[in-house]
Design a protein around this nucleic acid. Structure first.
Lengths: 159, 159
DNA sequence: GTTGATATGTTATAGAATTACAATTATCAA
DNA sequence: TTGATAATTGTAATTCTATAACATATCAAC
């Protein structure tokens, strides 16, 4: 068990399970989880945190390939557009999805102390936002929800 | 005049009212609405849309000053940190606030067809997100909420 | 007026992402 | 199998976004 994110968990199992779910989903949908894409997903799962495109690129370079930026961005685009990873706008960084293959609207809790990110869910159609959209005739297709604050550890450390 | 957006409105009045509200709030709080900051706010109010920092910078340059990037970013930082403008992460752009001086959590409806942006409200403490935060012990201080979709005009055009 | 804080001017650089085009590999129908 | 088509990858160059660093100027209070 590792202390990553807001809680400890079986990290090796979580990496394996994440990969398997994505592999299965790709097989079902006829998507190509090529070695490069798979490697980037692994890095995100291993890191279990938001990682910048250039941080991923540096790792790929250390591993031998003389990779250029599009290599990282293409893999990330594939992962994000298929719901296997998410972009954290606040951090200009990417994180593996905790529920790949499931249809969901992710919402992120981002700690400003340690940059840890937890994925939660949200329902943009409900609440004030959904009401405003319906009243104005706006059709919501997708939503980015990022809450910034302090995680339990950093809250404690600050006290 | 219309807080939700996507509709016609008395734009000159809305610019004037926006400026006056910010001037009043600055006076109340002892903030310096210097000529540069005021000009950037005017540009945002006149544009009535999300504008990039470099787009603003170009206008400032056309107006004579040999402005460098920090000129635009500093003015925008001032406006954003005091709640007179908001940053739209999705567009790497900035937009004048519709309710300057009031304490609120803005939520944006962003049209992917025409990039129009409407400001609505949200309450991050309620709903699924608030519950997830409370359950995990995360303290939300601020939230970025951006919904992407189609505005009424673009929905109609697409049909 | 001196002082300390706040704001501006300017140069340079860092960081994030995309364009463009060539080369390769996978997919699938004939 | 073969040929056509689409998807993916390699690579260089560029564009867009944002900040660091430091000098100068202005403001506000004592």
């Amino acid at each position: 068990m590792d202390a990553i994110g807001f809680e400890t968990h079986d990290h090796k199992g979580c990496i394996r399970a994440g990969l398997e779910r994505v592999e299965r989903t790709c097989a079902e949908r006829g998507l190509q989880l090529t070695p490069g894409r798979r490697r980037v997903l692994e890095l995100l799962l291993e890191g279990h945190r938001a990682m910048g495109a250039y941080e991923i690129l540096d790792i790929l370079r250390e591993e031998g390939a003389g990779a250029q930026p599009p290599v990282a961005y293409r893999a990330l685009d594939f992962l994000v557009s298929n719901g296997f990873a998410h972009k954290i706008q606040r951090l200009n960084a990417f994180i593996a999805c905790m529920h790949p293959g499931e249809d969901h609207t992710p919402a992120f809790l981002i700690c400003r102390g340690c940059d840890a990110v937890a994925e939660a869910h949200a329902d943009p159609a409900s609440g004030l936002l959904g009401r405003a959209a319906r009243e104005s005739g706006f059709v919501i297709e997708q939503a980015v929800i990022e809450a910034v604050g302090l995680c339990p550890s950093c809250t404690e450390a600050a006290a």
